[in-house]
Design a protein around this nucleic acid. Structure first.
Lengths: 220, 220
DNA sequence: CGTTCTATGCGATCCTGTTCGCTTAGATGG
DNA sequence: CCATCTAAGCGAACAGGATCGCATAGAACG
């Protein structure tokens, strides 16, 4: 459990960036991640055997576990990268002055464009959260929270600009947006929606969350 | 793949309810499901070994696969039962004259009460949908669709009563409601929300979907 | 009764993620 | 140079879900 309790005293294990062993380890990690990523893309997560990954990374299968806690983690690491990329893409094209719901839609489209290239990312990261005891589950949830946080930020700005009602609980709204998008992506992953259909469904849900379902006095 | 292509001609295999073999099979199926259900409750899905289930059902492990396509299916069968129960409970206490959002909330509370007793049901059924090629995935999605359909029905009635705006896409709204609830339950399953917190989160999301986020002219 | 067909059952086996105990290689300290 | 420590690596083994080929029992049919 507790890999390193405490360095017992001031035996302070300095990281020492020139340690040959650590460098080797780092290079191995890179090889593993590269191999995994390639094989995931080629065959999909489930068909990409750990032994195959290990072979391509030129090492024994069990050695992988020196660097990674589970196969899921290999994918979740990519998810983290990709999210980072999606966020930075979004920020670059983001116009903070534009309409709040437009920004949210742009956010999701951005994310979706990247996810669409690697369908396993969505599906497997969700699968990972169905192993609640596992470390990876927490990590995925943390990533989700960051996404939700970003959405909340957008909403918050919208609320300040009076695009949104001032009583809206932005965090609840953000997580609702997130879950709705995730749900649509699951349908897509299961072949119930085309990619376009998935995007449309997300857009529709966003729209819905913005305007609500109750009758409105002003005619549409 | 194709288990039974076609009875080749009019060799019409009548079901014959008095076939001793079929009866035996039926009894076995019952034993398996009972054993599975018990062990799932006792140890949880992941810790309940197929071999253990088989032992309790008093048969070889491989025999189980004569009656079931995968371990997931054993759980999903229960999910189907439970949903049926939740729906009938809901219908009994449902007042079709009452407010639409109240009905939706009552629907979810009903469902949640049953799910809370068997936490694996939510989690594992979601996991099952992360194996898109598998039969079980489709089945879970079909169950979800039924739930969504029921929600849509409630919304439809609300729309007729003018509780909802007449332009609302009830199906989109229903699936949004569903996904939001599922998301909250996943947080609960992962220990991020207490059971009460989960219920509250669902209520809040329902509320949000009803009123929307845009500023409203009439003061709250 | 004998033949054939099929639903059910079983043990052996496979596959794959993961763990274990041991070894190796490089660092550290004397 | 030697003792010691530790990150990294390895092959063997384990565990658990699933598959395979064969066996059995009951039905159908002549």
């Amino acid at each position: 459990m507790a890999l390193i309790e405490q360095p017992s005293a001031n035996r302070a294990s300095k990281p020492r960036p020139d340690d040959g062993r650590l460098l080797r380890g780092k290079r191995s990690r890179e090889r593993i991640r590269k191999a995994a990523r390639e094989l995931f893309r080629e065959k999909g997560f489930d068909a990409a055997t750990l032994r195959a990954i290990a072979a391509r990374a030129d090492m024994g299968a069990s050695s992988i576990y020196r660097h990674v806690q589970s196969k899921h983690e290999l994918l979740v690491l990519d998810l983290a990268d990709l999210q980072e990329e999606a966020w930075s893409n979004f920020r670059q094209n983001d116009d903070r002055q534009s309409d709040c719901s437009a920004r949210v839609r742009s956010f999701f489209r951005n994310q979706h464009r990247l996810l669409a290239e690697e369908p396993d990312l969505t599906v497997i990261s969700i699968r990972a959260t169905t192993y609640p005891e596992a470390r990876v589950a927490r990590r995925v949830l943390a990533l989700n929270d960051r996404t939700i946080g970003l959405l909340a930020e957008i909403l918050m700005q919208g609320r300040m600009r009076r695009d949104l009602d001032r009583n809206v609980d932005v965090l609840a709204a953000a997580s609702a947006l997130f879950h709705v998008a995730t749900g649509a992506r699951m349908s897509w992953a299961n072949g119930l929606l085309t990619e376009q259909g998935c995007r449309d469904a997300i857009d529709a849900s966003v729209e819905l969350l913005f305007v609500g379902m109750q009758p409105r006095t002003d005619a549409s």
